[in-house]
Design a protein around this nucleic acid. Structure first.
Length: 589
DNA sequence: GTTATACGGTCCC
DNA sequence: CTCCGACGCATTCGG
DNA sequence: CCGAATGCGTCGGAGGGGACCGTATAAC
């Protein structure tokens, strides 16, 4: 298929509303694709370049493309930047730049008369992305590659080419859309089976190719655990009160600690090859040689395990703060960091053992098998459960979790139906965190200091705000976090209009900020903000007397505009933050 | 020429 | 990770 | 009784902090 034809389909999707129409369009596209084009067509439509566990990473996002476009078109960077503020999308920007310089292009075409030969195929364009993913390319080399493709594209093609480069097609097409389309594509198509095959292989394009070349029989053959290939993890539905759990779980349930670490899936093939995988099917195999070694030592069967890895202080028997663990995600100096940041894996599930899938068994059965399989050792332990049938226990355990600085609790259905549901946000598992519950969460009254322009559906309004607290001693404002979650579209429109009236050219003298937003404002608007914890910050400027800086983790607008409070007295103070930071923390340091 | 810093990108939550 | 909004599907409401 | 209204769950795409990595550039 020609890239131009492919883009016409994308444009159609862009203009459609309603999932059913999109599915119909995707099916027309499918029927026209060569078999060899199916994978590129699907990966690209998702803004990706391969299955998650083995995809190309370009290292290109909007900021880079703005400088690239400036160099390619000769338009000054400042002008490109202000146009980007307007469009909020690099694809839309590239499309419109191209019509802007279209006159010159057409003159060139007139003399070269190669318009026909210039039509690029979908596969050709797709191949070009692998050139960009090569390591050690200079930025100029990348721009050259992009320019080579760009010069052969129409305005419409540019729109989707540039969107693909940043991995955001903004079409409303994701894996589940393709699953629905594939189910419709073939009369026998069973949506459940296609979805299941996808969750077991983590590769929607493989499932599509299989469905089209081998039919449902081929798809069914994919529906099992492939040891060595990551499976989509089951994740929990959230609840905000103990009694809410009765909506989903009728009988007995298990309460577990919710560990604040990385989700990890551990695979060992029958011939002893161990691989480790993240929640999003990225490899952890190189990151955790300590876990790798333990698995190699402890098992002699094929096995797939599910758990959470945390940084662990073995001396004091304490789970450490999440940010300590993140030091383990590195490419260099791994051996030293293994010693500096020891970890422990809390296992809570087993998906496969010795040639048999465990997925369809109830939780207690899976746990029994898991316990039997894990030998006594330090680094890999089976997480404890507390069995109960009383929702009040959930509230009690959550209180206890908050007291002991834990993230929250997990509640798991113990009925016979409660199987492992790969890839699902399942109601068999519920997560219950203090910051979901109104009476247990802390809030802050922060003042808007600055803002950045929104992108995509937030183009034209401010999309995120720089929020600050007030220091009564120094009489200065310090940045505490950016805030972009929790706003309705109306909120953003109103705030944008209001803020434009109090916008100032320069950063006010009493603002202490390292980060630089697109716009600065007089301190005036106060918003209520809630968060999960206070973390140490390398960029924000809320500092205690030791000079340690803080920021909010998972900040969101509660919807409460504090018009009842005024600046600066109504703004949360430095002293208050320092006080709250002592207990508003998950794990130990 | 070498080292330090800035900036953007990718991934975890 | 959190949140909003659009959509699809099921159930209830009201003429 | 049936179309309209409402409720609920799902999905996609906005947005957050932080550690690390790679490239470019400034400083030495």
């Amino acid at each position: 298929m020609l890239f131009s034809k492919y883009c016409e389909y994308l444009e159609e999707l862009q203009n459609e509303s309603g999932r059913l129409n999109m599915i119909e369009t995707l099916n027309r596209m499918l029927s026209e694709l060569e078999l060899s084009d199916i994978k590129p067509a699907i990966y690209l439509s998702l803004g990706s370049f391969g299955p998650d566990y083995d995809k190309l990473v370009l290292g290109i996002k909007d900021k880079f493309l703005l400088t690239a476009l400036s160099k390619l078109t000769g338009i000054p960077g400042s002008e490109i930047k202000s146009l980007y503020e307007k469009y909020g999308d690099v694809g839309d920007l590239a499309e419109n730049l191209s019509t802007k310089i279209g006159v010159q292009t057409r003159v060139d075409d007139f003399f070269s008369d190669e318009t026909v030969n210039r039509e690029l195929s979908l596969s050709k364009v797709y191949e070009s992305f692998s050139k960009l993913a090569k390591e050690g390319l200079s930025n100029n080399a990348k721009i050259e590659i992009i320019g080579d493709i760009d010069s052969n594209l129409s305005a419409l093609e540019k729109k989707y080419y540039y969107r693909a480069l940043v991995g955001k097609l903004r079409l409303g097409v994701k894996e589940s859309t393709w699953i629905a389309a594939l189910a419709k594509y073939n009369d026998e198509g069973d949506k459940e089976e296609i979805e299941y095959a996808y969750h077991m292989t983590s590769d929607i394009a493989l499932v599509a190719e299989t469905a089209i070349s081998n039919g449902m029989e081929g798809v069914r053959a994919l529906c099992h655990v492939h040891v060595g290939t990551p499976i989509h993890s089951m994740v929990a539905q959230r609840i905000s009160s103990g009694e809410e759990l009765r909506k989903w779980i009728q009988g007995e349930f298990a309460i577990e600690n919710k560990y604040d670490g990385y989700r990890i899936q551990i695979h060992r093939t029958s011939n002893g090859i161990v691989t480790l995988w993240s929640r999003n099917q990225e490899s952890y195999t190189n990151q955790f040689p300590d876990i790798l070694e333990a698995v190699e030592k402890l098992f002699n069967k094929s096995v797939v395990l599910d758990g959470e890895v945390v940084a662990y202080d073995y001396e004091n028997d304490k789970v450490q703060n999440f940010n300590i663990l993140t030091q383990r995600s590195r490419k260099y100096g791994i051996e030293e960091t293994v010693k500096q940041v020891p970890v422990r894996v809390f296992l809570f599930d087993i998906l496969h053992i010795d040639g048999k899938d465990m997925i369809k068994h109830p939780y207690l059965t899976r746990r029994e098998v898991l316990k039997k399989v894990i030998p006594e050792n330090d680094i890999m332990v089976v997480s404890d459960i507390f069995r109960s049938s009383d929702p009040e226990d959930a509230d009690l355990q959550l209180l206890n979790a908050k007291e002991t600085n834990q993230e929250g609790i997990m509640i798991k259905d113990l009925s016979e139906e409660a199987i492992y549901e790969p890839g699902k946000r399942s109601f068999f598992w519920l997560k219950y965190k203090a910051d979901y519950s109104n009476n247990l969460s802390d809030t802050f009254d922060l003042v808007i200091m600055g803002a950045k322009h929104g992108k995509g559906k937030r183009a034209g309004v401010f999309g995120t705000f720089l929020m600050g607290i007030y220091d009564r001693v120094q009489e200065t404002y310090h940045t505490f976090c950016y805030l972009g979650s929790g706003f309705s579209e109306k909120d953003l429109e109103e705030l944008t209009a209001e803020l434009n009236d109090i916008r100032v050219e320069e950063k006010p003298a009493d603002y202490d900020s390292v980060v630089v937003p697109d716009a600065w404002f007089f301190p005036h608007i106060i918003l209520e903000v809630s968060a999960a914890e206070i973390s140490d910050s390398p960029v924000h400027t809320v500092r205690d007397s030791d000079g340690k800086a803080y920021a909010l983790r998972f900040p969101r607008y509660t919807g409460k505009r504090r018009t009842d409070k005024s600046v600066p007295d109504g703004v949360t103070t430095l002293d208050e933050v320092v006080e709250i930071s002592k207990h508003f923390r998950i794990g130990s340091n």
